[in-house]
C-alpha cells in the first residue's frame, strides 16, 4: 500500500471516530464546560494545578476556561461572575483566601452551579468537595525531618504566609506540634507574606536577633528560598537548616545544590486532575467525598 493510501484511510478512520464521538456526546449530553478560577498563575504551584486541570479535562472531553485572579480577591470574584455568565457546568476554584473564596462560592450557589474547591478552602458556602493536600501532616513531616537533624533545646524559627491563610497555617501548626513534642525552642514566628524577597528580609532580621538559630521552617518554598539567601549572606549555611513546603522546581534545584535542606512537596498536578475527575463524577450522578486529601512527600538531598 502506498503512503498516500495509508494516509487517506487513516484520515477516514479519524473522521469516522470523530463523527461517532460527537454523536456519542450528543446522545449523552452536550460536552461539559468547567471554569477554573485560580488565585495566581504567578506561582509555579498554581501553574501546575492548572496544567492538571487542563490535561484531565482534555482526557475526559471537558472544555475548561481558566481565569487568573492574579492575587486579587476582587478580580477573583469578577472571574467567578464571568464563569456564571458563561453558564459553566461546574466551577473549580482555588481561592486567594478562605474569605474571598466564600464570596465566590456564594455567587455560584446563587446560580446553582456546583463548586469544587482545589486547595486553600473556603470560610463558608456550599461546596461539593474540597480537594486539598494533607497540610497538617506535611507540617509534621517537615517538623520530624528538622527534629532529626538538631538536638532538643535547639533554637528554631517559623516563617509563615500571610496572616489569615488557613491552609499554610496548618503546615505551621503541624511543625509547631512536633517542635513542642521534641523539645525544640521556637524563638521566632514571623510572616513573610509568601514572598521570596520578604522571606530574605525576615530571615535576616531573625538571624540578627537569634544568632544561634539552627533550623527554619517556611510555610512555602518561595520564602524558604529567600531565607537561604539570607542564611548564605550571613555565612551560616552550615549552621542553619532551612526546610520549605510545596516542592517547586526552584526549591528542588536548591536541594540538589545543597542550599536547601528539604521541602515537603505537594503534588499540585495530581490535585488539578483529581479536581476535574471529582467534578465529572459528581455531574455523572455519583456521590463524592466532602474532603479528598492529596498525599505529600518529603524531598531531601538523599531522595
Amino acid at each position: 500500500m502506498s503512503m498516500k493510501k495509508l494516509m487517506t484511510i487513516a484520515a477516514m478512520a479519524l473522521a469516522v471516530t470523530a463523527i461517532a464521538g460527537t454523536a456519542n456526546a450528543e446522545t449523552a449530553k452536550k460536552a461539559l464546560v468547567f471554569g477554573y478560577a485560580v488565585q495566581d498563575l504567578g506561582n509555579q504551584y498554581w501553574v501546575k494545578v492548572a496544567e492538571g486541570v487542563k490535561d484531565q479535562a482534555k482526557e475526559m472531553g471537558v472544555s475548561v476556561v481558566v481565569m487568573d485572579a492574579r492575587t486579587d480577591a476582587a478580580r477573583e470574584l469578577a472571574n467567578v461572575d464571568d464563569m456564571i455568565q458563561k453558564k459553566v457546568d461546574a466551577v473549580l476554584l482555588s481561592p486567594w483566601d478562605a474569605n474571598s473564596g466564600a464570596n465566590a462560592v456564594a455567587q455560584a450557589n446563587k446560580a446553582k452551579i456546583p463548586v469544587f474547591v482545589l486547595d486553600i478552602g473556603v470560610a463558608s458556602g456550599d461546596i461539593e468537595s474540597l480537594i486539598v493536600s494533607d497540610n497538617l501532616g506535611g507540617g509534621k513531616i517537615a517538623g520530624k525531618y528538622i527534629a532529626d537533624m538538631i538536638k532538643p533545646g535547639a533554637e528554631v524559627a517559623h516563617i509563615s504566609c500571610q496572616p489569615g491563610y488557613v491552609i499554610p497555617a496548618l503546615r505551621g501548626k503541624g511543625f509547631t506540634e512536633i517542635m513542642n513534642q521534641t523539645g525544640m525552642k521556637i524563638v521566632a514566628a514571623q510572616s513573610a507574606d509568601s514572598q521570596r524577597a520578604k522571606g530574605m528580609n525576615v530571615m535576616q532580621n531573625i538571624l540578627q536577633a537569634h544568632p544561634n538559630l539552627q533550623a527554619v521552617f517556611a510555610e512555602n518554598d518561595e520564602m524558604a528560598l529567600g531565607a537561604i539567601e539570607a542564611v548564605a549572606a550571613a555565612g551560616k549555611s552550615a549552621q542553619v537548616k532551612v526546610v520549605g513546603f510545596d516542592g517547586t522546581d526552584d526549591a528542588r534545584a536548591a536541594i540538589k545544590d545543597g542550599r536547601l535542606a528539604g521541602t515537603v512537596a505537594q503534588v499540585p498536578y495530581e490535585m488539578g486532575k483529581l479536581g476535574v475527575k471529582t467534578a465529572v463524577a459528581f455531574l455523572g450522578g455519583k456521590t463524592v467525598e466532602k474532603t479528598t486529601y492529596v498525599p505529600v512527600e518529603l524531598v531531601t538531598p538523599a531522595k
Binding site: 504567578g42 492575587t71 514572598q195 521570596r196 524577597a197 528560598l225 529567600g226 539567601e229 526552584d250
Partner: peptide, 15 residues
C-alpha cells in the same frame, strides 16, 4: 537590585 539580591526574577515581584 531586587532580582540580584534574591537571585530570581519572578512575575509576582515587588507587589
Amino acid at each position: 537590585m531586587y532580582i540580584g539580591r534574591i537571585n530570581s526574577g519572578h512575575p509576582n515581584s515587588a507587589l
